[in-house]
Simulated scan of single mutants.
Amino acid sequence: MIVKLEKFTEADFDNYFKLVNNAKVMEMITERAIEREEAKKDFENLLENNKLQHDLGNFKIIEEETEKFLGLAKLEIKEADSHEAELGYMIMPNYWGKGIASKVGQKLIETGKKQNAIKRIFAIIDPKNIPSRKILINNGFVSEQFKDFDGLPGEILELKLTKP
C-alpha cells in the first residue's frame, strides 16, 4: 500500500473526529475517546500549528490509490524557529498491522532531516505501545526518559540529527 501525507485543512474535521473519537485509537494516547467539542478545539490548534512551517505540521495519511483516510501523522514544531520537532501518528484500527506506521515514520524522519533548523526529533509513546517503540528504535531513536504526562505514563524517545 502506497501512502501519502497531506496537511489537514478545515474540510478535514470529520475524518479527524472519527480518529480521535475512536477509543481503540486513543487507548495508548489519552486512554479515552475525545468528544466533539474538545476535538474541535484541538483541531483548531492543529490548523494553527500547520501555519508555522510549510513542510512541518499535522498531516492526513491517505492511501494513494483510493484516497481513503487512514489516520494522522505529525512532525510538529511549537514555534517557527524551533530546533526540535515531535513525531507522532494515529492510524484507524482497520489499517493496523499493515506497515503503515513504519512507512509514515520513515517519511516523517526524512522530512525532518531535510529541515536545516531541526536538530532533534522526539516522540512520546505509552511504554506499553511495543509496536510504536519498535518502529522508532528501528529508525535510530533512543530512549531518553520515562515521564508522567497529565497522569498518564510516557516514554520519550529521540533522534538527534547531524547536519552537514
Rank of each mutant, 00 (worst) to 15 (best):
G105T: 12
A101W: 12
F59N: 07
E31A: 03
A23K: 15
D55C: 02
K114N: 12
P127A: 05
I118D: 02
I121E: 05
K163R: 15
I61C: 05
K160N: 07
K78N: 08
L161V: 09
E10C: 00
F146D: 11
E10N: 10
F43N: 10
E6S: 01
Q53T: 07
F122W: 14
N50M: 06
F17Q: 02
A85G: 06
E158P: 00
L87E: 09
K134I: 06
V3W: 08
G97A: 07
E158D: 04
K60Q: 10
D12G: 02
E86L: 08
D126N: 13
R120Q: 06
G105Y: 10
A85L: 06
M26S: 03
I62A: 03
I77A: 03
I62M: 07
I62T: 08
N116G: 01
K40Y: 12
K113S: 03
Y95M: 00
I137M: 09
R32T: 05
G57C: 02
I29M: 04
I156M: 13
I91R: 02
G71A: 04
F122D: 00
A11N: 13
I125P: 00
E110L: 10
F149Y: 15
E38M: 07
A11Q: 15
Y16F: 15
Q53P: 00
E48I: 07
F149W: 15
E64Q: 09
N49F: 08
L152R: 15
K134Q: 09
